[in-house]
């Protein structure tokens, strides 16, 4: 398992968490390179099918990030994200996917350190859990 390098898809919102990711860079915070970011305008754009697609294509974890509650650029998009992700996590759990593989985090554009921390934590946690191998099962 030591050699296992998890693949993690992270959805970033344009206004907050993407900026947090940029600031982590400015501050040269180091974190594992296992995370691949996809930018959306608002975390509320992310739907269960994108998370499912990620798992089916071989992701071992999916991270959805957005603005802190109350900070949403689109007023209340992130509240919709909470409901959606919570519900979908429960459904996946019923199908035997560990809920730790989906994580929802609020990262502001001033939280470069938090961005790096969350990326590190997520990678380590998934590394512990081991590969999901959903891709093979589907095939």
């Amino acid at each position: 398992m030591a050699d296992f390098e998890p693949k993690i898809i992270v959805f970033l919102c344009n206004w907050c968490s993407y900026g947090g990711g940029d600031l982590a860079g400015v501050n040269r915070e180091q974190y594992p390179s296992n995370v691949l970011g996809i930018k959306v305008m608002c975390s509320s754009r992310v739907s269960p099918e994108h998370i499912m697609e990620s798992f089916v294509d071989g992701a071992d974890g999916v991270l959805v990030t957005g603005c802190h509650p109350g900070d949403c650029h689109y007023i209340d998009g992130n509240y919709k994200t909470i409901r959606k992700i919570d519900m979908f996590t429960k459904i996946l759990e019923d199908f035997g996917i560990d809920p730790k593989r989906i994580r929802l985090e609020w990262i502001s554009s001033a939280e470069g350190n938090k961005y790096a921390r969350v990326m590190t934590e997520m990678t380590e946690e998934i590394r512990e859990l081991g590969p999901l191998n959903l891709k093979d099962e589907v095939e």
Binding site: G21, L23, A24, G25, V26, Q30, Y31, S33, G37, A116
Partner: peptide
């Protein structure tokens, strides 16, 4: 974004 979200934050491991 291969600078802020890549080269700057993985500068200890050029291969990765």
């Amino acid at each position: 974004n291969i600078r802020n979200q890549c080269s700057w934050v993985h500068s200890d491991d050029p291969e990765k």
